[in-house]
């Protein structure tokens, strides 16, 4: 604002005085207005520049493409991916259990048939059997063999189904790995934001989280994924039993 070009000059002042002395009121007013406007132009330019800078700064902040993309696309996408993992694992578990549930009655059936043949069969093996008993034994054994021949290919097919159902591990593993990558990226961005908004705030928040963690010692946490690194969890059923028996169970 101290730009000399926009200050009123001695020449302009003298011109103004002479115009007034000559009674040229209108021209004098015009001259004064010119001087005044030139100073205002400079002010407007400066305010305009500031406004543009502010606008661009805000624009930059909001339109950091990674943050926008993360909140608008990546995070909802991650939710979908994790839903997909739940769906896939549920499907695999049900496929496996369907196959197992179909196998178990066949195994029980075979076991029962063999059991019912065994007493007479044992007598045959020790040469202690009547001819009519032998005939009926032959039919029974024939039945067992036929049933076994029918069931085994079925069992084989069902076992293959169980095997194939395990392909979820590969698929879900890949999906989860991508979500882990996103979580890392979000974490990095959040750290950047915390740096901008001050460390004091971050420290207070961290303390708050820490104390709420301590409060929830007996609250549900879900599967423990780092049991070997923690000393507040049990390492398996044996430790649960030890703990309970120490409590008088």
């Amino acid at each position: 604002m101290s730009d000399k070009a926009h200050d009123i000059s001695l020449e302009q002042a003298q011109e103004l005085v002479s115009l007034l002395e000559e009674g040229k009121q209108q021209q004098a007013n015009q001259l004064l207005e010119d001087v005044y406007n030139r100073r205002n132009d400079k002010l407007f330019t400066s305010v305009g520049q500031l406004t543009r800078d502010l606008h661009e700064a805000l624009q930059d902040f909001q339109l950091d493409p990674r943050i926008v993309q993360m909140t608008e696309d990546d995070l909802p996408d991650a939710q979908n991916r994790l839903q997909y993992v739940i769906q896939k694992t549920e499907d695999a578990a049900n496929r496996t259990m369907d196959a197992v549930e179909a196998c178990l009655p066949m195994a029980d059936d075979m076991h029962q048939r063999v059991e019912s043949v065994m007493p007479v069969w044992n007598r045959l093996m020790s040469n202690d059997i009547e001819i009519n008993e032998f005939k009926s034994l032959c039919h029974q054994v024939d039945d067992v063999l036929k049933r076994c021949g029918e069931n085994m290919p079925q069992v084989h097919g069902l076992m293959t189904e169980v095997l194939m159902a395990q392909d979820y591990q590969d698929i879900t593993g890949q999906v989860i790995r991508r979500v882990i990558q996103l979580v890392e990226d979000v974490e990095k961005n959040l750290i950047e934001l915390l740096k901008i908004f001050g460390k004091e705030e971050a420290r207070r928040e961290a303390e708050k989280t820490e104390s709420s963690k301590q409060k929830s010692a007996s609250e549900a946490e879900g599967p423990i994924i780092d049991a070997d690194k923690r000393d507040d969890v049990v390492g398996g059923q044996d430790e649960v039993d030890d703990l309970l028996s120490s409590l008088g169970f």
């Binding site: 609250e219 549900a220 946490e221 423990i224 049990v234 649960v240 703990l243």
Partner: peptide, 11 residues
């Protein structure tokens, strides 16, 4: 349950 914290078992 998958909950395996000593505090929980005691609770």
């Amino acid at each position: 349950t998958a909950e395996a914290k000593r505090e929980q078992i005691i609770a």
